[in-house]
């Protein structure tokens, strides 16, 4: 019973059901094979495809926990990938590992700057998050196209390709990068007091101020973190396709990321957050995409599923809905 009431029970159950349903359509779904010391299989493939969404999702989780939202993540992905590809394209030797690393670092640093921009608009100028990040969402793709001069920049760099499509210690590099960032996020928030302070600010900004918490610095930090995550996701995406496509990179990913956060049990109003939940949410969304393909229905219909998931989750989270339709007194309602 306790276990059914766990926050992540339903998303986990849906994920298991989705995975199980694949068995009927492709019998080898769960088999993992080893080729050249690399693991292959549908499960590995789902994880590999989830990597960018996991990255963007954990950044988004922290932003949402402070009571904000970051709509610009898709644009940041496009910009970071564009800059990296541009720099790699200019290298004399595109296979230079140092050159590629510097290019990636440049992409990440630029993302960091964009994060400071978002954070400053929200925390220092006091613009509503949804509006503040809308600016970069609109302008960002233009900036990415400016960097690539409107072209789809193709690169032929083996070291760069590794980020999105390579393998190391038997696993896809992108999965390891995502796992690494998740680990950093967990350590940053749970091994320091950052998580507590973020949850306090999101839970009650006034009470937090009176407890001496400096919300401004925290807010800028989470937007910077979100932008860095998006920047890395942009590198993975562009490396995977060996090119920078300013329109396709991270298209609509902000919506998927918000969805992953909500599925993971973090409330959009801020406060308590769950990084594990977001990872679960991101994997669930990618599994949904893969499953629709393997069942043989058009991949676009996943949008319909997402619509239904968003509606159901929002209704279940809405106190008004619980009161009116489910007629179950909310357990929360102690505050008058």
């Amino acid at each position: 019973m306790n276990f059914v009431r766990h926050r992540l029970f339903w998303p986990a159950a849906i994920l298991v059901a989705l995975l199980a349903s694949n068995i009927f359509f492709s019998s080898g779904f769960f088999s993992i094979t080893v080729h050249d010391g690399h693991l292959y299989g549908s499960i590995i493939d789902i994880l590999r495809r989830s990597a960018p969404l996991i990255l963007v999702g954990i950044g988004m989780t922290l932003v949402i926990a402070t009571g904000g939202i970051d709509l610009s993540v898709g644009s940041v992905m496009a910009i970071s990938g564009a800059l990296a590809c541009l720099l790699i394209g200019d290298l004399d030797n595109q296979n230079s590992v140092i050159g590629v690393l510097l290019a990636c670092a440049a992409g990440i640093v630029l993302s960091l700057v964009l994060g400071i921009w978002n954070g400053t608009l929200v925390a220092s100028i006091g613009i509503q998050p949804i509006i503040a990040t809308l600016i970069l969402m609109v302008a960002g793709r233009g900036i990415a196209q400016l960097i690539t001069d409107g072209q789809i920049l193709n690169v032929t760099s083996a070291p760069y390709k590794v980020i999105g499509a390579g393998y190391t210690i038997a696993l896809p590099v992108s999965v390891l990068i995502a796992a690494g960032m998740v680990a950093i996020a967990v350590v940053l928030t749970r091994r320091t007091a950052l998580g507590l302070l973020i949850e306090a600010v999101g839970g009650s900004p006034t009470a937090s101020r009176l407890a001496g918490i400096q919300a401004r610095r925290l807010t800028i930090m989470v937007y910077v973190f979100s932008a860095i995550c998006a920047g890395i996701a942009g590198l993975i995406y562009s490396s995977n396709v060996s090119s920078a496509d300013s329109n396709a990179a991270g298209n609509l990913i902000e919506l998927d990321a918000i969805l992953a956060v909500v599925i993971g049990g973090t409330r959009l109003t801020g406060g308590r957050f769950s990084l594990a939940g977001t990872v679960l949410g991101a994997v669930l969304i990618e599994t949904l995409n893969v499953t629709t393909v393997s069942i043989g229905i058009p991949v676009e219909t996943t949008l319909l599923f997402k619509a239904i998931v968003v509606i159901v989750l929002c209704l279940v989270q809405s106190a008004a809905f619980r009161a009116k339709v489910l007629r179950r007194p909310s357990r929360v309602g102690a505050s008058a």
């Binding site: 507590l196 949850e199 306090a200 839970g203 009650s204 009470a207 937090s208 406060g271």
Partner: peptide
């Protein structure tokens, strides 16, 4: 302006 309702007793005390 006082407690952060969804945080635990412990978290509220050390805040």
């Amino acid at each position: 302006e006082g407690v952060v309702a969804e945080l635990s007793v412990r978290e509220n005390i050390i805040l």
